[in-house]
Amino acid sequence: MLKKAKPAFSISVGIMLVLVLLGIILPEGLESVTETIQVFISDKFGWYYLILVTLFTIICLVFFNHTIRKNQIGRS
């Protein structure tokens, strides 16, 4: 099983492992880093989240009332 692991598997497991180890060894360091990044993102990209999510909503609503609405998701 492990021999056949795809790069997507090994890389993401690796990253998560590093994160977990960091959290155990340097809990405070990790906390302050994530907090800083979080504050930065919600400050600078708040507008982006709002527009993006509303865009998804609009697209969903458009398909609600579109001729494509009869198309199934997946093969018919």
Partner: peptide, 12 residues
């Protein structure tokens, strides 16, 4: 820049 983007989003 950030104020512009925020005022743009909010005003919409």
């Amino acid at each position: 820049t950030l104020f512009i983007l925020n005022i743009f989003t909010n005003s919409i």
